[in-house]
């Protein structure tokens, strides 16, 4: 299957704590996939493993038929992967403009700025500010601008609406929808389940490092969600 990404038997963790106890997941091309689960359930770790920030202890990650488990972050990025982490996701010591320039390389700065400000006009007045001085919400907008900066084949977005107001989050998701093509795969982890279910084609519920539910959003009613997650 082209354009798809799959995790096969991935185990991962931090220090002596194993967080993912062997997960099998598939993210088909051209879909939006939502990962939902409690804090600490492993959603973030799944994204980090896929992005290469956390190395799996075992298992494989396959993207378009190639085993990318050992790839560096740089190689994944040049192959078209964009990962926006839930924290430390902007360069605090650089200005907003410098951040955008880096995100959009090798495009000229103006292109990157326009792409970001078309969705987050709030950023235009902040271009000369260091990212470290922004508020949490502004910083999150800047981080998400990376998802819009250049065309991506695989978008991994962790904790998207952290610090964002509902209106801004909606605006971002709309822009995301608009830009995605049949070749784009988008994986989001979202705190607000209803938001996530609203835009996703496929939902995975993660519970304690294992896949507890896989299916379409419509199949996940209020009750079943509660039982699946608890």
């Amino acid at each position: 299957m082209t354009g798809s990404l799959s995790l096969v038997g991935v185990r991962a963790g931090y220090g002596s704590v194993e967080v993912l106890h062997g997960v099998d997941l598939s993210f088909p091309a051209g879909t939006v996939v939502a990962l939902v689960g409690h804090n600490g359930s492993g959603c973030s770790t799944i994204l980090r493993c896929t992005a290469g920030v956390v190395r799996p202890r075992s298992g494989r990650i396959v993207w378009d038929g190639a085993d990318i488990t050992g790839w560096t972050g740089y190689r994944r990025t040049t192959a078209g992967m964009v990962f926006v982490a839930d924290e430390h996701n902007v360069f605090n010591t650089l200005t907003v403009a410098e951040n955008l320039e880096l995100f959009g390389r090798p495009q000229p700065l103006d292109t990157s700025v326009d792409a970001a400000c078309s969705v987050f006009p709030e950023l235009r007045d902040l271009l000369d500010h260091r990212a470290g001085t922004l508020s949490g919400g502004e910083r999150q907008m800047l981080a998400l601008a990376r998802a819009l900066a250049r065309p991506a084949r695989l978008l991994l977005l962790d904790d998207v609406s952290r610090g964002l107001s509902a209106a801004v989050a909606t605006r971002f998701f709309a822009a995301l929808r608009e830009r995605s093509t049949a070749a784009t795969t988008t994986v989001i982890a979202e705190q607000f389940i209803d938001t996530a279910l609203g835009i996703a084609d496929i939902v995975y519920a993660i519970r304690r490092g294992r896949v507890a539910f896989a299916g379409e959003p419509g199949e996940l009613s209020e009750q079943s969600l509660a039982t699946v997650l608890s």
């Binding site: 939902v36 409690h38 959603c43 904790d159 705190q191 607000f192 389940i193 209803d194 969600l225 997650l229």
Partner: peptide, 9 residues
Amino acid sequence: GTRSRRAAR
């Protein structure tokens, strides 16, 4: 709190 129920992720 305006947004829909928050799942404790």
